[in-house]
Design a protein around this nucleic acid. Structure first.
Length: 268
DNA sequence: AAAGACACCTGGGAGC
DNA sequence: TGCTCCCAGGTGTCTT
């Protein structure tokens, strides 16, 4: 999936096309996603899309009568299409907006389309930590949270309660940039290095957004164009290849079931 | 209470 | 060619 930069890229790509448009229909071809597509979403037909927001990896499409909360899961994507384009096998939902539609494609169906009542939040959003690129992400609480756990640092920074939006790709990349071994207990990383990690997370995510996200097997941006960040990846997907800094072989291991790549020489 | 395992799905690639 | 197995961007929920 989509990690945070891909979701942000999707938001930016879709927003100018769908904002201020009136919802003319919601077509659900496959309701069985991670949770069933909320039936209440039908009540939004006739409403106008006021804003499009992102919280962590969720997209929120707001109307006066409530919001649509979309998650792309591992393999989801959204794009704007001309009305009438025939759906493919994995095109599960269309949000029709007159002449155009917002089409949701998701082969693995780990995503969701949920209803959020007006002026309310959703329980899924209530436990989330700070946004890495916003003001509420601060050095000291971040460092304190990491010093308080003995989990491997990589798993700790992928924990949504500590900071949202750091998925497997960018966790690998941020740790490389900060020169921290992914397997090191978070509690045993110096404050100086935690500061470097704080900066690295923000830099890596911001750069990926600038480049339109990382193109993976089945990710394309909302305009159908690929992201270019893959060209900038230093470790993810490069196990066994040379470290871009010291030229030694990158090591690939599994951590919490997730592929983890690092340079044993540069990262300690 | 924290942390690890499991679950949800499909498709693609490796290996036999 | 075709079968089986493993792996993939996430994350809530159940089990220790």
């Amino acid at each position: 999936m989509p990690e945070l930069p891909e979701v942000e890229t999707t938001k930016r790509g879709v927003q100018p096309h769908i904002q201020q448009q009136r919802i003319t229909a919601l077509v659900v071809r496959q309701a069985k996603l991670r949770w069933p597509v909320s039936p209440e979403l039908q009540s939004l037909v006739g409403e106008t899309i006021l804003t499009v927001r992102r919280r962590a990896k969720y997209l929120l499409i707001d109307t006066a009568k409530g919001s649509i909360m979309v998650h792309l899961g591992m393999s989801g994507s959204l794009r704007v299409i001309e009305q009438g384009e025939p759906p493919g096998f994995h095109d599960h939902v269309d949000l029709e907006l007159g002449k155009i539609a917002l089409r949701y494609t998701d082969p693995r169906r780990f995503g969701c389309w949920l209803f959020v009542a007006p002026n309310a939040s959703h329980e899924l959003l209530s436990k989330l930590g700070p946004e890495p690129l916003e003001e509420d992400f601060q050095r000291e609480p971040f460092a304190a949270a990491l010093r308080a756990t003995k989990r491997p640092i990589k798993q700790a920074i992928m924990d949504n309660k500590i900071v949202v939006g750091v998925g497997n790709i960018y966790a690998n990349e941020a740790l490389f940039m900060a020169k921290i071994s992914p397997v090191r207990a978070a509690s045993r990383v110096s404050v100086k290095r935690l500061n470097a990690l704080y900066d690295a997370i923000r830099i890596v995510l911001a750069e990926a957004i600038e480049q339109g996200g990382t193109t993976l097997k089945d990710f394309v941006g909302s305009d159908g164009q690929p992201g270019y960040f893959k060209q900038s990846l230093h470790v993810y997907g490069r196990g066994g290849l040379d470290c871009t800094v010291c030229k030694q072989a990158l090591k690939e291991i599994r951590l919490g079931g997730r592929s983890t790549v690092y340079c044993p020489n540069c990262q300690r």
